[in-house]
Design a protein around this nucleic acid. Sequence first.
DNA 1: TCATTAAGCGTTG
DNA 2: CAACGCTTAATGA
Length: 224
Amino acid sequence: MISAERFRQIAYWADELNGSDFEEARRGITEKSFTAGSYICHKGDRLDYWTGVVSGLVKLSAVTESGKSVTLAGLRDGGWFGEGTVLKNEARQYDLVSLRDTDFALMNRATFMKLFETSAAFNKILVRQLNERLGHFIALVEYDRTLGATAKLARSLAWLLNPVLYPRASKTLEITQEELGLLCGLSRQATGQSLRQLQAARLIDFAHNSVQILDDAGLRNFGE
DNA sequence: TCATTAAGCGTTG
DNA sequence: CAACGCTTAATGA
């Protein structure tokens, strides 16, 4: 269980819930840490929690038939995920890997289902998240086939700044080029090169350990 | 063949 | 000391 203050810190949606729902949610959440490089879960595992990334960086990936790993999404601090899996009460369909030391907030399934069945505000939060993620996965279909390296990077960056999934996110990301490469399926040097291209196009700026987004619409539409 | 990558190394913040 | 840029040899479409 966590304090009300802590709850507000780690869940951007906390204050959308009314008093009793707020309490219900708060009581159902615990925190857990993972070190860099560890698997939070593999495909097929059960993970019966709605999960928030408090701090750190997480990769959501799948393994193709040919055996290579494909990243489906990156999750940064402030993001909440797994609502689809908890709702359907099924095993995870993807691998979840922490790219750095990461702290998670976990809402247990009983709490999640109770809120789902009784709280309109909670449903509103869920629908908003699911809808946004649907858009992400649709974009992903063309992503791998048609887009070049720089466009891939541009889309990944745009998603890490998604205002619905990360309403509190600043325009500056603290992330290394290697981590960024892991997230969008690029090597370190390809990532660096693409960053320079996006900078030349005035869509971003970057320095050691950080990327600043200057034009999110431009990033989303890059390469069209 | 041409493009991309992992590995190593010197430099930088 | 970790992150970055650059070179090189290997790899693969």
